[in-house]
């Protein structure tokens, strides 16, 4: 656990880091970024909290078991969206043109709209869940191990 100044600053900063990671994930099909990048940003926020507060303090609110569940559900969302297009093809973008994320942008430069992209934003969301929870679980396990503490069974 670091000094009180570091703890207070990181306590204020974690909100903005999480919001920025969510922004990168959700706007993955409009602006540069996507599930992998946003998930890495969120995991780096978790790293900052572990460095500032110590892994023993973080372990009370962030369990490895729950992180594994979140990671697996992200993978299931991704695979499920891939299989949902199975009517025509594996990984077929079946949501284009439908009311759900189906708006088709004009070809060429345009201001962009979140409500487009078909299956891509949903897949981005699943991959974002998966990457953020997976990296956080790895870092938490390593931090707990290097401290010689008990991991959650």
């Amino acid at each position: 656990m670091l000094s009180k100044i570091v703890r207070t600053i990181s306590d204020q900063l974690i909100l903005f880091i999480l919001i920025y990671g969510l922004y990168i994930i959700i706007h993955g099909h409009v602006t540069p970024g996507g599930g992998f990048q946003g998930g890495a940003v969120i995991a780096s926020g978790v790293v900052m909290m572990i460095v500032a507060f110590g892994s023993g303090e973080i372990k009370k609110s962030l369990r490895e078991r729950h992180l594994s569940v979140v990671e697996s559900s992200g993978a299931l969302i991704f695979i499920g969206m891939a299989f949902a297009g199975m009517g025509t093809l594996f990984f077929y973008n079946f949501l284009v043109g439908t009311p759900v994320f189906g708006g088709i942008p004009p070809t060429g430069p345009n201001p962009g709209d979140v409500w487009t992209g078909g299956v891509i934003p949903l897949m981005n969301f699943g991959v974002g869940l998966k990457v953020s929870a997976g990296l956080s679980a790895v870092i938490l396990a390593m931090a707990l191990f290097s401290r010689g503490e008990e991991t959650e069974e």
């Binding site: 060429g108 962009g112 299956v119």
Partner: peptide, 15 residues
């Protein structure tokens, strides 16, 4: 943009 309805061509290729 017409086929996958996403502005980000990289995301369209990747996903």
């Amino acid at each position: 943009q017409a086929e996958t309805a996403s502005n980000n061509v990289v995301a369209a290729v990747v996903f």
